[in-house]
Nucleic acid binder design. Structure first.
Length: 445
RNA sequence: GCGGGUAUAGCUCAGUUGGUUAGAGCGCCUGAUUGUGGCUCAGGAGGUCGUGGGUUCAAGUCCCAUUACUCGCCCCA
């Protein structure tokens, strides 16, 4: 009986982790440029927070949460966070951020949990990066967040995506639209897919979002939410579009874009990957002016987005930008006999303390095996010590790139290594000392 | 929750109409004269063929179940 990680809970091994770290460093850099501070929030929150924050009617709350009762008396229902906007809003209220400063800008990176069937680009434990901007009701804030999303993709080198943009209005406007849409859809329900008929009762706007051909056909002439927006929302949306255009961010207006979470108002957007599978949303977000109040704070406008990190990684792979990280090491220390091995171990520790990446053999293997290992690890230099060297208090230092080797006294070793590492690797990396007896058929006269 | 596909060595995969000790490439280990890597060559280790039943003289191969993975539906990042 062997154990296996849970379905949808993948391990990330060092080779893959390298890609994650690259992505994370781009994210931190983006956040630095845009002035967002990192928040690290708990994995667990009260189930009620998500129920109220994300929305009772959403699938996330309805069927995808990892919820359980804890050991307290009476037991409390807790939930592994399925997203972070609600938690961040909770933290914003709890720490009275609105009193401390007029604008708060936060970002987060971390695992989220949703009980779903795993498939391409979707896991039960997955990772999101998100921004939250609290305090501004103005279109400049919407634009800043969207531009940050576009900038992230630009920094990563991703171009194969499109930005879809829509406004879903205020709560009142959406309620009005909802009845208008229902009026249009009800006589057509015979033409709709079964799912959409079901959706009509729960959340009619989602019918627009359907991928099914019959639904798309049936809704072709449906009223558009943009047409029912009041002057203020319309103006807001126009300003957002203008600001994006001025920043050179390309987008397409998509009146079918409806976000699945209850807390969104007005601006909604999604960065859609073009060569991903069915799970093609790289990231998405929008404005959520009602959420802070909903989780018990003073009414505060906010905008944000979140990106799926697994999906960004998949997109990078598709674009050939994954780039495997070649193992790179400064120095490998080789000892030939017992005494030399002991020396190698302490020397390795010294080199490490001096800031070099150093490695030595832990298996008491032959010199040949140690050389092979050094090469495999991508070591720049190798330090070799045997009985003679130990007696003479010096070591052979070999530049693995050029093949040059010389004896260096123990006291000068560190300096020699640092000097060697500071020089660029010799351009002719593979000198191939074999086949010296090659005849020269060309240049002879 | 519902459908399709897949499951053989660490990895990627072959495995003929069921028939003897299950293969390849890569990777790993060891050698190719005394203490020197990459290339090449030669050896070697490693698999109860996902698991459990069944059919058969005989199952990696056929049937059933189950689990995992995978791709979709739903929904989302």
């Amino acid at each position: 009986m062997t154990y296996q990680s849970l379905k949808g809970f993948p391990d990330i091994l060092p080779d893959a982790a390298a890609g994650w770290r690259r992505l994370e460093s781009v994210i931190h850099e983006l956040a630095r440029r845009f002035g967002y501070g990192e928040i690290r929030l708990p994995m667990l929150e009260s189930t009620d927070l998500f129920a109220r924050g994300v929305g009772e009617g959403t699938d996330i709350v309805g069927k995808e949460m990892y919820s359980f009762l804890d050991k307290s008396d009476p037991p409390e229902s807790l939930t592994l966070r399925p997203e972070l906007t609600a938690s961040a809003a909770r933290a914003f209220v709890q720490h009275s951020m609105a009193q401390a400063q007029p604008i708060t800008k936060w970002y987060y990176i971390g695992p989220m949990f949703r009980y779903e069937q795993p498939q391409a680009g979707r896991f039960r434990q997955f990772h999101q990066f998100g921004l939250e901007l609290y305090g501004s009701p103005n279109p400049e804030a919407d634009a800043e967040v969207i531009i940050a999303g576009a900038e992230l993709l630009r920094m990563l080198g991703l171009t194969n995506y499109k930005l879809r943009l829509n406004s879903i209005g205020t709560a009142e406007e959406r309620a009005a639209y909802r009845t208008a849409l229902l009026e249009y859809l009800t006589p057509l329900s015979g033409d709709l897919s079964q799912e959409s008929v079901r959706r009509m009762e729960k959340n009619p706007l989602r019918v627009l979002d359907s991928k099914k051909a019959e639904d798309i056909r049936a809704t072709a002439d449906a009223p558009k939410i943009l047409d029912v927006l009041q002057e203020e929302s319309r103006e807001h949306f126009e300003r957002v579009k203008g600001l994006l255009a001025a920043s050179g961010v390309e987008f397409t207006i998509d009146h079918r874009l409806v976000r699945g979470l209850d807390y969104y108002t007005r601006t909604a957007f999604e960065f859609q990957g073009l060569d991903l599978g069915a799970q093609d949303a790289l990231g998405g977000g929008g404005r959520y002016d009602m959420l802070i109040e909903q989780v018990g704070g003073k009414s505060t406008p906010a905008v944000g987005f979140s990106f799926g990190m697994e999906r960004l990684l998949i997109a990078l792979q598709h674009a050939g930008l994954a780039g495997d990280m070649a193992p790179e090491e400064d120095v490998y220390v080789i000892g030939l006999d017992d005494a030399s091995r002991a020396w190698a171990a302490t020397a390795t520790a010294e080199f490490r303390a001096a800031g070099l990446s150093a490695e030595c053999d832990l298996l008491r293997r032959s010199m040949k095996a140690q050389m092979r290992e050094a090469n495999r690890r991508g070591a720049r230099a190798v330090v070799i010590v045997g009985g003679d060297e130990l007696a003479g208090r010096h070591a052979q230092v070999k530049d693995l790139a050029s093949g040059d080797q010389k004896a260096i006294g123990f006291d000068d070793l560190l300096g020699e290594l640092k000097g060697l590492l500071a020089r660029p690797a010799a351009p002719h990396t593979v000198p191939a000392p074999v086949q010296p007896d090659r005849t020269e058929p060309i240049s002879e006269s």
